[in-house]
Design a protein around this nucleic acid. Structure first.
Lengths: 243, 243
DNA sequence: CGACGCCTTGATCAACTTCAAATTTTGTGG
DNA sequence: CCACAAAATTTGAAGTTGATCAAGGCGTCG
């Protein structure tokens, strides 16, 4: 018992200040494994708009997101673009077992990453089924999110899309804050052009619909970036308006 | 060696005629495991439009698709609907480790299923990491497909959406037939209303765009259901038209 | 200050939807 | 096999939504 406690305190220096340590994939690692991973790990800070993974490149490094927001984008030959997912701390970034699809990752805000070689993760997976399970569970979550968003892209109006986007961000900013109806305040992590690429709209339509919802009292906006939602129920209703 | 051969031939009767046996999740099971699963398994045939899994229900049965096409749909309160995925043989159907998202599954065509209790699968997973890996890989594939489709929904025109849909079906009908440029013939597994729900369009727009592409010589149609693509390259080009 | 990036607003336009009706296909009973 | 009803698809005309084109405002940074 004593020994175990001592052992437990042997956490890599690099991990000690990590708020995501218990929530991300690191949460399922035992202290030895965490040490092994920690030794190979480097922290990095990337500024907004930096490209983290470019489409088609062979990624031999994986990362955990410690803070900030990452956007995953798909690009068509003529320049049309679609953001297919947003990732937040403590999400795992990178695709084990290769991927046929061409996706690139970009920092949407300033992002702090914890990066390590793919081979290290792969050897940890081999010795720990829980780690594979954890990755599997994140993928299942991402699949659910992708499908939710398909409904938004395919069937919602521009105004509902904006409301749905704000609703999703509001819930991500404060995950423990359940659908408490009280006021919620947060910064939009994307600029208008990114919101447009996420929702399948143009920046002009995004701007107009934000104005419309603001005037309808669904939320207020400060400095173009900070959103205040007085009543979450009202925002939620705006995500799916009956005729 | 002799013994192993005998053992290998002890494949459940129910599996012997299954074309999907080596490709789906069953492909990673050893003969003992296959026997165990086979004993709990029932075959069923469901007709087109039957509901297989209803949104929000607690699914205690999983299935492998032996033939036919299954559509996964999401429904809004006011009736708007989006098909978020199509599944083909030998896909695994069901969601291990629960799901927060409300999806229902319906037979798009006549479907033959191989069904077994969730608990059986879960105990097989516990003893075979390869099985979990196989399920994980299918989920990764589904995630890639979902994100590809998000680009289609968010950024493609009606005409490109139709072409993309036909292109996807053509590739699924004959997976071993690589992008051979020669003529491909297949049946559309969905009726117009389903195509509309898959592409985020109305049936009228689907009909008009199909007519347009047909008149442009991208494909021919027989009996409203059978499509003949003379040149796959032409269909592929129609998936992403430069201005 | 002036230039640049970002966002908003206005006017016009095109794509897609909606509403309505005709036509074709499919299924059923005689 | 035909007749007929029901379902599915196509076609047409008009209406809306969101895109496009074009300016103008605001804030930041050199």
């Amino acid at each position: 018992m004593e020994k175990k406690d001592i052992h437990n305190s042997e956490v890599p220096v690099i991990c000690r200040s990590c708020e995501a340590r218990h929530r991300g994939i690191c949460g399922v690692l035992d202290p030895d494994q965490l040490m092994k991973l920690g030794k190979q790990t480097t922290k990095q800070v990337r500024r907004a708009d930096e490209e983290l993974i470019s489409a088609g490149s062979d990624v031999r490094t994986y990362s955990n997101i410690m803070s900030g927001v990452v956007k995953l984008t798909k690009l068509m030959a003529d320049g049309r673009q679609q953001i297919v997912a947003l990732q937040f701390a403590p999400d795992f970034m990178g695709r084990p077992f290769h991927s046929q699809s061409e996706i690139s990752a970009e920092a949407a805000t300033e992002v702090r990453l914890c990066s390590f070689p793919a081979s290290t993760l792969e050897s940890l997976i081999a010795e720990s089924p829980e780690l594979e399970r954890k990755l599997h569970e994140q993928n299942l979550k991402e699949l659910d999110e992708a499908r939710d968003w398909m409904l938004t892209l395919g069937r919602k109006t521009a105004s509902e899309k904006i409301a749905s986007f704000f609703y999703m961000i509001a819930n991500h900013v404060d995950p423990e804050l359940e659908v408490g109806n009280g006021p919620v305040k947060f910064d939009i992590p994307l600029k208008r052009a990114d919101i447009a690429d996420f929702l399948g709209l143009t920046i002009e339509t995004v701007s107009r619909q934000i104005t419309k919802l603001r005037k309808a009292g669904v939320f207020e906006i400060e400095n173009n970036r900070t959103v205040i939602v007085p009543k979450m129920s009202k925002l939620k209703n705006a995500c799916e308006v009956e005729h």
